[in-house]
């Protein structure tokens, strides 16, 4: 099947099997590997991308469902320069292994786009679906708070 959609601002067309999935298409066909696979069942959030601005678990998203829509990945969040959120992530030295962090940042970016200065409770509620085995949660909260006050 041919699917047309916008990926990081550019219109693209991909040729895949009927049942192709968004995550594997992005990662393997299009080789944008910043978006991670970790559970495949919408339990961890490592694969989070934005579909028309909404944080979405790519691992359970059929490719066909994004036809005509706009998909943003971590690569698209920072094409020219790092966003304030990513700068805050560096300032707080958030990542450990780093594997969950694209998903964390994409999830957080969607929050700040909606709500530029969230309370701690709002941050926790919004971020709770994204797992971090290395235990960086407290620093993630600090980074979001830093980005929200500097925004």
């Amino acid at each position: 099947m041919t699917t047309s959609f916008k990926l990081n601002g550019k219109s693209i067309e991909v040729e895949t099997a009927e049942d192709a999935n968004l995550l594997w298409t992005i990662r393997e066909n299009l080789q944008l590997t910043g978006t991670k696979f970790a559970c495949g069942i919408a339990q961890c959030g490592s694969c989070t991308v934005h579909v028309d601005g909404v944080p979405t678990r790519a691992c359970i998203t059929p490719l066909a469902s994004v036809a005509g829509k706009s998909v943003t990945t971590i690569e698209g969040l920072s094409e020219k320069k790092l966003s304030a959120l990513q700068e805050a992530w560096i300032a707080e030295q958030v990542p450990q292994c780093g594997y969950c962090q694209s998903g964390q940042i994409m999830q957080a970016a969607a929050l700040l786009a909606e709500n530029p200065s969230p309370s701690r409770e709002e941050i926790v509620n919004h971020m709770n679906g994204v797992l971090c085995r290395c235990g960086t949660y407290l620093r993630i909260i600090k980074a979001i708070e830093r980005a929200s006050t500097s925004a």
Binding site: T73, S78, I90, Q93
Partner: peptide, 8 residues
Amino acid sequence: DIPAKVDG
């Protein structure tokens, strides 16, 4: 290693 872990 951190910068590369925040831009994917």
